[in-house]
Simulated assay, not measured.
Amino acid sequence: MSRTSRRLMLAPMAGLAVLSLALTACGGTTQDSATDSSSDSARRVTGTANPDAPITSGLKFGFLPKQLNNPYSDIEVAGGEKATGEFGGEYKLVGPNDASASSQVSYINTLIQQQQNVIAIAANDPNAVCPSLNQARDAGIKVVTFDSDASKDCRDLFINQATTEGVGEALAKMTSDQIGGSGKIAILSATPNATNQNAWIEVLKQQLASNPAYSGIELVTTVYGNDDDQKSFQETQGLLQTYPDLKAIVSPTTVGIAAAARYISGSSYKDKIVLTGLGTPNQMREYVKDGTVKQFALWDPTDIGYLAAYAGAALASGQITGAEGEKFKAGELGDYTIGVDGELVLGPPTVFDNANIDQYNF
């Protein structure tokens, strides 16, 4: 499956226009784009970009996902490793085994001591990592967040999977479509402080409160599996026992949705409860095939790490400074333009179901 075809628009979800790419396909930058944005000034964007500069050879990259041995994170960082190999960089993977708020701090400090050129991090907490990340930046290290952002004033760029609004709206629409627009639902999230999870959930809540099409849907609770398979499994069991009239569980985390599917598939709740959210095709294939899950969504996580690596290389090589409007080429993904607050949007997610899931392998 080509990368172009993997980044399909959400055909079954007409009306999600906000998922359009915040990108343009052209190269180059200007001095004005690096100096005129007050938002960029607050983010310490300095210097002048040289879009014609080559990528510096031998750049040292430290990739720090939310946690090691997380299937989704493993796919993301594999994309980063591929990209660093393409431009001759040195790839290092470090990280905690848990996704707690402060678990990444010691690893950032170690990467500073090792004099990495770029730190690429999926933040477990937007604020807990900031003092260490700013120490890294003071040492001349470029900081790129991916998947889950840190506070804007302690990183140079953020690689977003899709717009926050787009993901939240997608979750609302998939849920509504599958439960007929009415009924009680619950959310199975990752950690309470996960930046991306909380942002998507907030948009989902806003949609339920403001969109007349969802007026019959009641969100009864949000629980947290901490991106741990067993805890997510147990939380699913608890939800279904506590709310016997629950119609759907929405899990915007790949660990959570897979654990929930495993529980439901072997229980009396199969065919009685809707499960949807964000997952990888390889994790979810058996549950789609056996009818436990009808529909879920995601983007290609490999591309997130891949784009993070090329963005970090462009920063460290002086092709860009991180200012809004600057442009660079991200290998086989093509040309990207930096948006407001140093954000780059990978693209829209794809909805997976029994009709298309076998076309994907990640």
Rank of each mutant, 00 (worst) to 15 (best):
V340S: 15
N69D: 14
W299L: 06
P252K: 03
S38A: 13
S2T: 15
G180F: 01
I187P: 04
N109W: 03
F296T: 01
I217F: 06
Q104M: 09
S20Y: 09
A194Q: 10
N134S: 13
I273S: 00
D300M: 07
G256S: 14
L68I: 13
S232Q: 01
P349N: 04
G180V: 03
D227F: 01
A311M: 09
A162K: 10
Q283A: 13
K294A: 12
K82L: 13
Q319N: 04
T321M: 02
V77F: 02
N354S: 15
A170R: 05
S38T: 12
T48M: 05
D147S: 09
R285M: 04
T221A: 09
D156Y: 01
E90F: 10
Y107Q: 09
D300Y: 09
I264H: 02
S73M: 15
A190V: 11
K142P: 03
G27Q: 14
N196E: 10
A128K: 06
G305A: 04
A101M: 10
D32Y: 14
P348H: 01
G28Y: 10
A42N: 13
D147L: 11
G140H: 07
Q104G: 03
E165C: 07
K247W: 06
G140R: 04
Y263H: 05
N193C: 02
I185D: 01
